[in-house]
């Protein structure tokens, strides 16, 4: 899609304010919390530190695009089933980072998941159920 936007607008602002895609959240706008993570060409980035113009031509995936054909992604299902989302505010970013991890490494160990999610702060869950949910999604449903 093409969108005209002011140069000084970050991808975060373009998504939330110009496109009305408010699923992408923000917590500091300085790259210090990971809340605003989106995928650019499959890689997780901080949308508060990418300009809209820098995303030109890139494939940008936000939480709104994670369901496919009306079906939740296995990660979304696992997060819901295990109560990994408490207040839920950090969850869109975390789900996308987890998706990028599983896309490149379908069976990560718990430490690899920890490492990959170390740039996404969550204040509610202590990460425990989040790690469990990523493991569960990786193993495929029905294992727990």
């Amino acid at each position: 899609m093409e969108i005209a936007s002011e140069t000084a607008k970050t991808l975060l602002e373009v998504l939330r304010e110009d496109l009305g895609l408010t699923g992408t959240k923000h917590g500091c706008e300085l790259g210090e919390c990971g809340t605003c993570a989106v995928l650019m060409d499959g890689k997780p980035v901080l949308s508060c530190l990418v300009l809209g113009v820098e995303a030109e031509g890139a494939d940008v995936a936000t939480i709104e695009g994670m369901m496919q054909g009306g079906q939740p992604h296995p990660l979304q299902r696992a997060f819901a089933d295990l109560g990994a989302a408490q207040c839920g505010y950090c969850i869109p970013g975390i789900l996308l980072v987890a998706k990028a991890l599983l896309d490149s490494n379908p069976h990560p160990g718990r430490d690899e998941i920890r490492e990959m999610l170390s740039g996404n702060l969550c204040r509610c869950t202590g990460y425990t159920k989040i790690l469990d949910a990523v493991e569960m999604a990786a193993k495929g449903r029905g294992d727990l």
Partner: peptide, 21 residues
Amino acid sequence: LPKIDAMAKCTGETRYADDLH
């Protein structure tokens, strides 16, 4: 059981205050 709002929170549908326009 999953929370009743779990899927909304996992799909970006939940509208927090700053999402209102």
